[in-house]
Simulated assay, not measured.
Amino acid sequence: MQPWRFVVIDSEEGKEKLAPLSRFNKDKVLNSSAVIAVFGDKNNFDFAEEIYSKAVELEYMPQEVKDFQLNAFKPLYANIMEDEMKDIIMLDAGLVSMQLMLVARSYGYDTNPIGGYEKDQIAEAFGLDKDRYLPIMLLTIGKAAHEGFESYRLPVETTTEWR
C-alpha cells in the first residue's frame, strides 16, 4: 500500500527547526544538504483504489486481479490491529528507505540513517498529524565532509544458521 511518506528538509530554516529534535545528531542535520524525514501513513489503505486502478489503466495488472486483491485486503485492513499496522509500515518504510539510500549512493551521494531523534515531536514540528504519521527515520543526504569510520560486522557464523 506504499505507506511511506517523505518530508524533505533542505532549507536552513527547516534544518534549524529539526536540529533541536535531533539529539546527538545535530551536526549531521545542520551540515547535510538535506534531511529526508521518513514517515509511515497509518491510513495508507486510503490510496488502495488509486494504486490498483492506475495499475489496471497502465496494464500492469488485469481488472480481475485488482478486484481480487482489493476484496482480499479490504477486510484485512479494516480490522487490523494498530501493532500489526505498525509492523507492516515499519517493514515497508524501512525497505524503501534502504532503496533510497542505495539509489542516492549510485548517484554519488552519501546518506546516513538516523534513529536518534524526538519521534514524539517530529510530525507536529513539520505540520503532520502525529496520530496518523508514524516516524520511521531521518536520512541525511549530501556529499560527505569527511570519511566515516569503518564499521565492524559480526561474522556470518554469529548471525546466520543453516538448517
Rank of each mutant, 00 (worst) to 15 (best):
M1Y: 06
Q2D: 07
F6S: 06
D10M: 10
E13H: 11
K15I: 11
E16M: 11
L18K: 12
F24C: 12
K26V: 14
K28T: 07
S33Y: 10
S33A: 10
A37G: 03
A37Y: 00
N43Q: 15
A48R: 02
A48M: 07
A48N: 01
E49R: 09
E50L: 07
L58Q: 13
P62Y: 00
Q63I: 10
Q63D: 09
E64S: 11
K66H: 02
L70E: 12
K74M: 11
P75C: 12
Y77H: 13
M81Q: 11
M85N: 00
K86S: 05
K86T: 02
M90V: 14
L91C: 07
D92R: 09
V96A: 09
V96R: 03
S97A: 02
L102M: 10
S106A: 08
Y107I: 00
Y107N: 06
D110S: 12
I122H: 09
I122R: 10
E124Y: 05
E124P: 09
A125N: 06
F126A: 08
D129P: 02
K130F: 00
Y133D: 00
P135L: 01
P135E: 04
I136K: 08
T140H: 03
I141V: 15
G142R: 02
A144D: 05
A144E: 03
E147D: 05
F149C: 13
F149R: 14
F149Q: 15
E150P: 06
R153G: 14
R153E: 14
L154F: 15
L154G: 14
V156R: 15
T159S: 14
E161S: 14
R163N: 08
